[in-house]
């Protein structure tokens, strides 16, 4: 302890060292090693990527994942924004109750929440039972293992996150601002468009990034509700690694996932900073 007393700098690094070591040894090195294996092909450093982008099957998986992630994000933004708007304006106790109702699913595991949709959308599931009972259909529909079933479950997964992100943001917009707009003659729609929306944009971007990257990299939900037929990047990585034991192919999928998510995060955080009217 004696040398520590003399130097705050040394003390600071000594306290940080275990955490830095953990991240370096168990995240940075393993992930770099995964990325490095994709450039080791004897036919040239980018051969594995060329093979990936040449294969219709693999590109189909990438596009499907993009599509599901984008659709999930758009739906979650719409549902999340409108709901958060109502929650933010709800008074006192009821508001806490609504926040609890949003936090509860968020803290319940992905497997449990995806399982719920397996019971609902299955061939003998609750939705089919209900539709048969009211007589809309005569034969049970097969809703599972479609892109739609994956999207429904993903929206279910991410709407709470969106609501919680946006409630915080919308509460932060002072009532004075909209009041000022109204007293200057702005109609409610105009006040919303000119005052509320610009101030909510950074929050909308943060929420969208969380939902997009979360659904782009998800594993359990596409595995349960999409199966083999609706392979997505997460399930494709797992299949390559653990079923076909093709680690180079799995690493290539991993590398594409890392590039897509990091690019999204970096790009959007720049956009958010640019668009923030308060920090301006």
């Amino acid at each position: 302890m004696v040398p520590f007393r003399s130097s705050p700098r040394l003390r600071a690094w000594a306290l940080s060292a275990p955490a830095i070591l953990l991240v370096t040894c168990f995240l940075l090195l393993p992930v770099f090693s995964t990325l490095a294996t994709t450039f080791g092909d004897p036919e040239g450093p980018f051969a594995t990527y060329a093979a990936y982008f040449d294969s219709r099957l693999r590109m189909r998986v990438l596009w499907r994942t993009m599509e599901v992630a984008v659709i999930t994000t758009v739906i979650s933004v719409i549902i999340g924004f409108l709901t958060a708007w109502v929650v933010a304006k709800t008074p006192g106790r009821l508001k806490s109750l609504l926040i609890i109702a949003a936090v509860f699913p968020l803290l319940t595991g992905v497997v449990v929440r995806s399982f719920a949709w397996l019971i609902i959308l299955g061939k003998n599931g609750i939705l089919n039972d209900f539709l048969l009972w009211i007589g809309v259909i005569t034969e049970p529909l097969s809703m599972l293992y479609t892109e739609g079933s994956v999207i429904v479950a993903m929206v279910y997964l991410f709407v709470p996150l969106m609501i919680l992100t946006l409630v915080g943001v919308l509460e932060g917009i002072p009532q004075d601002m909209t009041d000022a707009a109204a007293s200057l003659g702005a109609k409610p729609a105009a006040a919303f468009r000119e005052v509320v929306l610009p101030m909510a944009v950074p929050g909308l971007i943060v929420g969208s990034v969380l939902v997009f990257t979360g659904s782009f990299t998800s594993y359990a939900t596409p595995q349960l509700l999409g199966g083999e037929r609706q392979m997505m990047m997460g399930t494709f990585l797992y299949q390559n690694a653990m079923v076909r034991f093709d680690w180079v192919a799995a690493s290539t999928v991993a590398a594409i996932m890392v590039v897509v998510t990091l690019t999204t995060v970096l790009l959007m955080s720049r956009v958010a900073r640019k668009l923030n009217p308060v920090a301006g």
């Binding site: 995240l27 995964t34 990585l237």
Partner: peptide, 19 residues
């Protein structure tokens, strides 16, 4: 310290298994 959230979890799992 927030890298474990930033890097896709499934990539982290796969890399940990390998290395």
């Amino acid at each position: 310290y927030v890298l474990p959230i930033l890097i896709p979890e499934i990539v982290l799992g796969f890399s940990l298994m390998k290395s």
